[in-house]
Design a protein around this nucleic acid. Structure first.
Lengths: 362, 362
DNA sequence: AACTTGGATGTAAACGTTTACCATGAAGAT
DNA sequence: ATCTTCATGGTAAACGTTTACATCCAAGTT
């Protein structure tokens, strides 16, 4: 029913080898034959069978992407970044998100064998040992934002520590001394690093240290809202709040707004991630910008190198720098009014590139 | 190097057929043999080769998803909906987004042959004729939000017309008579349907009709902002604005805010899509809610039916209903204050289910 | 005229599975 | 004791490609 290379060969009166050569642009086929085969292929709507091809070439031109949960702007940006880079290199993407447990994630990993040339893995469930246990060591893998310090795998992560440090540094420079933190789940590596940046910055910059100012939430708007309510009860109240992601910052904003607490006049606020929404809330949110699509693109390019070198390359651990984006919510000198900014202008913000210690980069 | 079923068979001292039977849970293998093979498979970290398997079974357990551009909350929701449904049914997802031209999209379509069991296509570039020309007719396909009225393909789309109609009906009920529209590109099918809903509702409900009130933009925040500026110049000014998506509505909000025009007191505003951000802008945005993940899940399930029935099923055209979500931006009676709403509560909004004529559903 | 070269094409093996079919032998039925 | 039956497991073909190798033949070289 579906037309194969044999049908094509028969119709064209040549061997399958010749058809294959034409289709793959191999040399030494006469122009006449080429024409005939090509015309016939179009006419019969022939499309080569990918699986058969990969079986013999041991190339799939596909890379697998394993994500914790395909949700929200972070992941759409990430996939977009990976996808664009993949297309540029002629690769396809096999994506899979939200695995409830380790067993399911492992099953998905297994299922990708023979359908992908490599894997980009971002999953709190999966560590190096799990990977080693379930996959052949010949499969190239890049770990994304993983706590993993494994020498066997490449990894790329965001400079959580430096980003958090930069935010606190900014708060301190603006003049705040009593700064609270709304963190993500302690089990999450990103949360822990951002918390560490917060704590060490407080210490290093001489701000006030008070464990009562640390609240743990869950990275969601709802969690941020609850945390915001608890913030309001703290005495004396903090003058600024650093939320470990923008979703929680928005929740905090919500809680403060309800209570009549003005941002930034009564309490300053900063987030992390710089999701697109950040600039459209009122007041626009100061945040730590992370170039998520770059993260994805870099991961893909690293993976391609690994594939090219048959996984015999030197492993790398890469850290992507962050940029502090200052908007109205942190009460920095003479910035914005709380109105939405004009989205057609260049960002009306000050950006500060920082190194991994939160220090200003030239 | 990588271990195959043959290695496994040799080590276990059985034939490849037996190993295959064990691995696929086929009957008639003694418990002892099964144990031995399973233990060995785990020990050697054997994983079956997907491509080889699909070659002989003609099943890939993968479905392809072709999207116009993986960008923004709409697409992350859509992919999420598809992914969840796919996993539930044991399928994987091969996604591809943002094709600059028809040729590239066609190339991607071709490349999926033999790697997918079916296709979900959402792309303005690709119509029925292109599909017919590039793909074997035996491949099951579901079209998403496509203008296509092709009898050959299943399709699912959102009730753009009904959603727009419902929004205007609501505006009229609140008391507005002079209502402007900020539309998407005229080349886009969704825009055209929303515009049609707007126009026909104005006529049907006796509101003011004035071509000067129709502005075309491009579905982006920036485009909405520009449109907002033009709105301000219209004399007499409209009392309400219906933007064809939330991104543009946010842009309009921005322009109005800059000009000191209060929403909803001076001008009411409504959007379309009900993206998560909609409830966090100030004032919270009234919008037409679309269950995007449902759209994705439905598409996948329809595709699975088609696959099951080897594409010999009856084709269907499905229209997904919308829900009007009333928040503060439209100035409906005694709603919100412009503050962020508490995200832990059930939505503090009135929802109105409507049929395809924008009439209230029981 | 014999020999070499190389372009065009065909032959067949290989890739890693699944599965229809067949062979074996033990247990139960007569 | 012979015949069935059935569980177990082996043999080999098939899936649709690519590609190493072989073959053929025309054209050029000596």
């Amino acid at each position: 029913m579906t037309v194969t290379i044999k049908d094509l060969a028969r119709e064209a009166g040549v061997s399958v080898a010749t058809v294959s050569r034409v289709l793959n642009g191999r040399a030494s086929v006469s122009a006449a034959t080429r024409e005939r085969v090509l015309a016939l292929a179009a006419g019969l709507r022939y499309v080569p069978h990918g699986a058969a091809r990969s079986l013999v070439t041991t190339k799939t031109s596909t890379i697998g992407v394993l994500l914790p949960d395909i949700y929200g702007e972070f992941f759409s940006e990430l996939i977009r970044g990976i996808d664009l880079a993949a297309r540029r290199h002629g690769y396809h993407l096999l994506v899979s998100g939200s695995h409830s447990d380790r067993a399911e994630a492992a099953a998905v990993l297994q299922a990708t064998r023979g359908r992908v040339d490599g894997l980009i893995v971002m999953s709190p469930e999966i560590d190096g040992d799990t990977l080693r246990a379930t996959l052949p060591s010949s499969l190239p893998i890049v770990l994304l934002n993983s706590p993993n310090r494994d020498q066997e795998y490449d990894s790329i992560r965001i400079d959580n520590y430096g980003g958090a440090f930069a935010m606190i540094r900014h708060f301190v420079e603006v003049g705040y001394r009593r700064i609270a933190h709304v963190g993500g789940p302690a089990s999450n590596h990103d949360s822990r690093e951002r918390l560490r940046g917060y704590r060490e910055a407080l210490g290093a910059l001489g701000a006030e240290i008070d464990p009562a100012l640390e609240i743990e939430a869950d990275f969601s708007e709802a969690g941020g809202y609850q945390a915001g309510r608890r913030l309001l009860a703290i005495q004396p109240p903090p003058r600024a709040v650093f939320a470990a992601n923008d979703a929680m910052a928005i929740g905090v904003l919500c809680a403060l707004g309800e209570a009549g607490v003005r941002v930034p006049e009564d309490m300053a606020l900063g987030g992390f991630d710089d999701i697109p929404t950040a600039r459209y809330v009122a007041p626009p949110l100061t945040s730590v910008h992370v170039s998520i699509d770059t993260l994805g693109a870099r991961a893909l390019e690293r993976l391609l190198i690994a594939i090219d070198l048959k996984n015999r390359h030197e492993r790398m651990r890469e850290v992507l720098p962050t940029t502090l984006v200052v908007r109205a919510s942190c009460g920095a000198p003479a910035r914005g009014t709380g109105a939405h900014r004009n989205p057609t202008e260049a960002p009306s913000v000050s950006c500060v590139d920082t190194d991994s210690q939160g220090r200003r980069r030239p």
